[in-house]
């Protein structure tokens, strides 16, 4: 397969995952900041909730790495 297409595929794998993660984090983040403003002791949990969607990007990274390693 052409190297360019492989690179585009890998880029899409991580890029789309990052986009989805960002969308999820934007919603969680605004709600979490509202909660922290009311109860500062929830800061730790807010970070935890914010960090959960990041797994999507990590999985995207794993898929991108697999595309490059197996096809590249």
């Amino acid at each position: 397969m052409e190297l360019g297409l492989i690179a585009i595929g890998a880029g899409l794998a991580i890029g789309l995952a990052a986009l989805a993660s960002g969308l999820a984090q934007s919603r969680i983040g605004s709600a979490a900041m509202g909660a922290v403003a009311e109860k500062p002791e929830l800061t730790g949990r807010a970070i935890l909730l914010m960090a959960i969607p990041e797994t999507l990007v990590v999985l995207g990274f794993a898929v991108a790495a697999m595309i490059i390693l197996l096809l590249g």
């Binding site: 797994t55 990590v58 999985l59 990274f61 790495a65």
Partner: peptide, 12 residues
Amino acid sequence: LGNVLSYLRIAA
């Protein structure tokens, strides 16, 4: 398994 894969962020 997702928990283990999550450590790939160290590499990323």
